[in-house]
Amino acid sequence: MFKAVLADSRIWRNIIESISTLVEEGVFIADPTGIRLRAMDPSRVAMVDMELPKTSFESYECAEEMPIGVNFDDMKNIMKRAGVNEKLELEKLEKEARLKIRFRGKTSRTFSLPLLDLGKEELSVPRISFLATVKLPAATLMDAIKDAEVVSDFVKITAEDEKLKVTASGDRGEVEVEITKDSGELLSIELKENAHALYSLTYLSKMMVASDLSDIAILMFSTDMPLRLDFNLPNGGRIVYYLAPRMEAE
């Protein structure tokens, strides 16, 4: 049996939203240490890797590993009903193919979500050594991405000389966003080498949904290699995204 209580149901709501932008169906693995999920989007271009340790919960019970396969659209619709100041209880009995989702506030409301038997695809995260690691406020990154979206559907991210540059160009014009330490917006930057790569804005903006969960984003990438974007949750746990680079236009 699995039973977990979160003090604030909106955390789970945001987690579900952050996953559901990329993935339609996926399997949470609950085990004695916490809950995790690793899934790729259907085009196999992006991956989300979420973990929420036992310590993030108000109470947590899980004797042995238990897969919980869900349809994220359905779960998202349930989580939209989460109210302010409501606790969240997740519960699954050994034999039942349903997850109980209970909101506890002024009233107690229990949804029962049918689970999917999805089988397990063992995914390993991309093994890449990143040349650039940049820490910045999530809102700043979000702005840069929104700026780029005005003119193009992909973006060039460059890290050099203690600076992060986000540039985009297309038929609709060009844009360059410079984020430096001086402005205080660049919290830290570690460079083993200068790096630059192209990424699709469609995917990046989907990933930025997770900025509701964390004020700070950690961006890691290398030249023409996949990108990694980390959001650390205040109460422990994290959401990590990986995104394949866009191929240079010929």
Binding site: S43, D224, M247
Partner: peptide, 19 residues
């Protein structure tokens, strides 16, 4: 567009040789 279209424009995430 979302699945195949997305896949045709991006490189591989898992380091495969192609798609």
């Amino acid at each position: 567009e979302r699945v195949a279209g997305g896949a045709t424009l991006q490189g591989s995430l898992l380091g495969k040789k192609g798609k």
